[in-house]
């Protein structure tokens, strides 16, 4: 990446071992992500891509290595990770909306409790987001009344209500019916066009091709190859990547 860009996340030598090193989910992953960059991580299942993404906001505690977010090593001891997580939005494969709250409550809980916004402020902001993703009329609905695509769109804007600097997506469309994938990807594309920094683990190669600034291919807990979408999809070098692309395209 060019030097004049501002690095926002920098992972250095991330390792995640289970069973005392018997299983190496991450085996030394280093990556720099610039502000405004859209990074898509692809790879076969079990390659460690989700583990890597989840390490970035410490949902997985790495066995070794550092994660610099805005210049602070958040993997170090005695760091208030909760403060940093407020600035890193996350979207999960299974949405994880809070079922006992309405859509609006889902979206305003964290801004009110953590950012100390007034409920009115938070609601105004939330409704604005809902309008943008076309779900304004579902503000008072409960998650169980929504389709998968709607749930995921709500999950995205719930994270956005915290005004994060980075958005992490952990296979956001993998649990969706095929016909609902498009509506979620559209929201993500719009988000990318606003200049949001995004790190996205996905199997949607079309999305990667169209939106990504950089595609990362992971395999067996390491980054095997990375580059622009054109390079990755049209001129892959690594045999594992070629094999992977053949099997899915």
């Amino acid at each position: 990446m060019s030097d004049n860009k501002e690095c926002i996340i920098k992972a250095v030598g991330l390792k995640k071992y289970y069973k005392g090193g018997e299983i190496k989910a991450l085996d030394g992953v280093s990556l720099e992500i610039d502000k405004g960059e859209v990074v898509v991580i692809i790879g076969p299942s079990g390659s460690g891509k989700s583990t890597f993404l989840r390490s970035l906001n410490l949902l997985e505690i790495p066995t070794d290595g550092s994660i610099f977010f805005d210049g602070v090593d958040i993997a170090a001891k005695h760091v208030d990770i909760n403060k940093h997580r407020q600035k890193m939005g996350m979207v999960f494969q299974h949405f994880n909306l809070f079922p006992h709250m309405t859509v609006l409550q889902n979206m305003t809980l964290a801004p009110v409790k953590l950012l100390k916004k007034t409920p009115e402020e938070a609601e105004t902001k939330a409704l604005e987001f809902l309008r943008k993703v076309g779900l304004y009329d579902r503000a008072q609905a409960y998650p169980s009344q929504l389709s998968g695509g709607q749930k995921q769109r709500i999950a995205i804007v719930r994270a956005l209500c915290m005004e994060p600097e980075v958005m992490l997506f952990d296979e956001p469309t993998s649990a969706l019916d095929p016909e609902l994938v498009g509506e979620v990807l559209d929201v993500m594309k719009n988000l990318a066009s606003t200049g949001m920094t995004m790190v996205c683990v996905t199997h949607e190669m079309g999305f990667a091709r169209e939106v990504a600034d950089r595609v990362i291919f992971m395999c067996d807990g390491v980054i095997v190859e990375q580059g622009t979408p054109e390079k990755i999809f049209t001129a892959p070098e690594n045999p594992r990547l070629r094999q992977f692309l053949q099997s899915i395209l």
């Binding site: 949902l59 997580r85 939005g89 996350m90 006992h100 809980l109 953590l114």
Partner: peptide, 24 residues
């Protein structure tokens, strides 16, 4: 996933318990 969603928003463990888990 409910814990993770709470934590990823920036709630600490006990806030996650209080606002998200215990009510359910």
């Amino acid at each position: 996933g409910q814990f993770e969603a709470g934590r990823s928003l920036g709630f600490n463990y006990f806030q996650t318990m209080r606002y998200i888990v215990i009510p359910q």
